[in-house]
Design a protein around this nucleic acid. Structure first.
Lengths: 231, 231
DNA sequence: AATTTCGATATTTGATCAAAAATATGAACG
DNA sequence: CGTTCATATTTTTGATCAAATATCGAAATT
């Protein structure tokens, strides 16, 4: 990797600080699964790798810690967060609770114009699944749900849900999905989208809840399989 | 203020870093309402006030920003977060959704022994209200709910809810509660506690939802009153 | 031989200094 | 008299250096 960080040429977002650029760069790397879970992130290493001083690295690591992507211990440094079944279960429980809220508000608050692209995004996800590219699937899935989040107009809740997405992203890239998960996802998306478009709060909320629960169960299965095969 | 931060004497928690100690000190100050909403926090000022260098101040401010207590803009510095009605509404919506989850899990997972102090904490809150001390009320209220959070065994969700508490703490200290809010709170606590102790998930969830919604509405009323009287 | 203590090394944390960016100030001009 | 541009000041951000702390390994003692 070692992408340019001191944007001398200035291709994108010129007026960001070094630490912000570094944060996003590390975030993408981590989400892309370029680090082993539990891997150390040494300040000096990162600083040298990007050709910058220690300071912006420290700030970037703190930011990623705040997003729960890495863990920092006093005088011991930063590590890529490892997740166990309990954590994943709790995370998805939380996401389920918030997603129910967001879907409810989405149905209440979204304009028709806002919801127009929803079916298009639903189709895009189907295509991404057909392509077989995990990263594309994850992006399309995220885009589909993001539309509903945005329309709910609760950026605070959206932010927390987004953190959850980021946390499990690397694991999904690494370990993939269960056998029937993708087809199931497509079915559940259709149910959810149709309920939202029909402005049926009750059905939409139920669909969101089911969707999160089944995603959680699949993730837990994948995690258990991985742990089993690794032992 | 200007409390000792370099614990040379070492009365409590010797092995914490300066930035962590400073973070907690600032957090308490802000929650106690010692800063106006929107007030600036200059790095040099804070560093001089506590007799430390800029570095731990920067880390502390980043931490408080992660907790949404302050806001930092590039090259413009940190300010105590100001909240408007929309933000408060969103915040309480989120808290409501998570509290419903936590209460549900609490009923499912809590041991009888764990729930034993619940009625005691309910009484303690009644006493705190009788005392008329807002800080004591807030602490007792928090302690009552924290028991249910802890018993739910979802530290991730608990953490997010806790951030919500901290965010509105300063505003409650400053602006207080609506006329009937405290009595209402006491009634709702009793309903919630009894439902939990009876292991009645449905009633407990309903009580939690009602409790959050009415707390939100009261807070919004207080905010509107304040805005009205200040104009 | 196992355990513990001591010391060397690596790494984070804190302090000081320099650079960049934003805000405030003031002079020149319309 | 008000506006605009340039300059100065303030404040954050980044770099370098020093101190504190943890980790690891070796030596000594039980």
């Amino acid at each position: 990797m070692n992408a340019q960080i001191n944007n001398g040429s200035g291709s994108e977002a010129l007026n960001e600080t070094t630490s912000v650029r570094l944060t996003e760069m590390l975030r993408r790397s981590i989400m892309a699964g370029e680090f082993e879970p539990g891997a150390r992130l040494r300040i000096a290493d990162v600083a040298k790798q990007f050709g910058i001083s220690h300071m912006p690295v420290r700030e970037a690591l703190r930011q990623l810690e705040a997003d729960r992507i890495i863990e920092i211990e006093s005088h011991k440094g930063a590590r890529i967060r490892t997740v166990d079944a309990e954590f994943v279960g709790n995370m998805y429980d939380m996401r389920g609770a918030l997603e129910v809220l967001l879907v409810e508000r989405c149905v209440e608050r979204a304009s028709d114009a806002e919801l127009k692209p929803l079916k298009e995004l639903e189709r895009a996800y189907v295509q991404a699944v057909a392509s077989g590219d995990r990263v594309a699937m994850l992006a399309a899935n995220r885009a589909f749900h993001s539309l509903t989040y945005k329309a709910a107009r609760n950026p605070e809740a959206e932010r927390i849900v987004g953190q959850g997405w980021e946390l499990i992203h690397a694991y999904r890239v690494r370990y993939g999905f269960g056998r029937e998960r993708l087809k199931q996802n497509i079915r559940e998306h259709k149910i959810l989208a149709d309920a939202i478009l029909a402005r049926d709060v009750r059905a939409a909320v139920a669909a969101a809840k089911t969707h999160c629960d089944s995603a959680r169960d699949d993730m837990l299965r994948c995690l258990a399989d991985e742990a089993g095969s690794a032992s």
